[in-house]
């Protein structure tokens, strides 16, 4: 659906050359929600703008909807852009036009007759739950409502791809959740392919199937969110789970400190009670979390294992055998 190959972007800034992107390649499959995660200044904005050529890459290839965008004429590019919706961090609604006129804009661009535009606008406003705001000006809307208008406007010409440029970054947590839920619904109901950029791990965990981590203009990792999160040592895991704050001093009972990574089938098995029954050890919980990511659950757990030394080492061997602990994490402290 979207394929970027070997994208580099160099800016000239006062005689100096600044490299924003270096050899970035990624592929977004149809129907997928693909997230690019990175801190500000990592090049995310430049990357997403290369997909509809708001920025022209210095090098590389951009293939969207089966078209090589860089080889299109200006007129062909204009038409191709009508098939790629985009929403923005600051919404970018036209302040001089009503909500309905904003949503109608891309339909005018597409040259639809007035009657069809009116019907389609009503349909879209209903879709995002803002039918009563048709004649309101954007300045009167809350942030969440503005982004819903932005989404309605982006989807008006029935694009198959939606680009989201930090769409929830200026919204409060609750509104963020509702906008993400809307995007998730649109992805499922319309089969909409979404490429989003964000600096929020929450966004990645909430709606992304696939994620790419961008650092200083380079992709350092790319893969399924659930897989990366359940793999200690991945960049995403490191970003999502900073080191436990419970240090050595908290291990008060002279037992064994154990870190578990939970994902897939492990996350649903009664691990702690199994340990207790089979090895006659006790697990004292210290820190941890377990959460849903998409259809799966991932998390990690820090606890202290106490009991007879033999029992404890047998229990550790069992955990290792099950692939639940990394060697590193199970070292005696």
């Amino acid at each position: 659906m979207i394929e970027l190959r070997g994208i580099s972007k160099v800016y000239r800034q006062g005689g100096r050359e600044v490299s924003a992107l270096q050899d970035v390649s990624l592929r977004v499959d149809p129907g997928e929600v693909f997230g690019v995660l990175g801190q500000s200044g990592a090049g995310k904005s430049t990357l997403i703008r290369c997909v509809n050529l708001l920025e022209r890459p210095t090098q590389g290839r951009v293939r969207v909807n089966g078209k090589e965008l860089l080889s299109l004429s200006p007129e062909e590019l204009r038409l191709a852009r009508q098939g790629i919706g985009m929403i923005f961090q600051h919404f970018n609604l036209f302040s001089s036009q009503t909500v309905a006129a904003n949503v109608a804009y891309p339909l005018e661009v597409a040259g639809l007759p007035r009657e069809q535009i009116r019907a389609r606008v009503a349909e879209l406003l209903a879709l995002v739950g803002l039918s009563d705001k048709a004649d309101t000006y954007p300045a009167r809307l809350s942030g969440g409502q503005k982004q819903r208008v932005g989404i309605a406007r982006a989807l008006a010409p029935r694009p198959r791809i939606l680009l989201s440029d930090e769409a929830t970054s200026s919204l409060d947590p609750e509104t963020t959740r509702s906008v993400l839920a809307l995007l998730r619904d649109l992805n499922r109901q319309l089969g909409l392919t979404i490429l989003l950029i964000t600096h929020q791990m929450e966004v990645v965990k909430a709606i992304c199937d696939t994620v790419a981590v961008l650092e200083q203009g380079r992709l350092v990792e790319q893969g399924k969110v659930v897989e990366l999160l359940s793999r200690p040592g991945s960049h995403l895991h490191g970003l999502c789970y900073p080191p436990f704050t419970t240090g050595e001093s908290a291990v008060l009972r002279g037992g064994q400190r154990v870190e578990l990574s939970l994902s897939g089938e492990h996350s649903t098995r009664p691990i702690l009670s199994t340990l207790a029954r089979r090895f006659d050890v006790d697990a004292h919980l210290l820190e941890g979390s377990l959460e849903r990511v998409g259809e799966a659950r991932v998390g990690r757990l820090l606890f202290e294992l106490t009991g007879a030394p033999d029992a404890v080492s047998q229990a550790l061997a069992f955990l290792r055998e099950q692939g639940l602990t990394s060697e590193e994490a199970a070292h005696a402290w």
């Binding site: 038409l79 852009r81 970018n92 036209f94 661009v109 680009l163």
Partner: peptide, 29 residues
């Protein structure tokens, strides 16, 4: 006029003429 609005209009496939007449001038009115 916020350059983001021009960017949004371009991203929607507007011609330059339309950007001027339908976005820049009304926003600056």
């Amino acid at each position: 006029v916020d350059s983001g609005l021009v960017e949004a209009a371009i991203a929607m496939g507007s011609t330059h003429r339309r950007v001027i007449v339908r976005v820049l001038l009304p926003e600056a009115l």
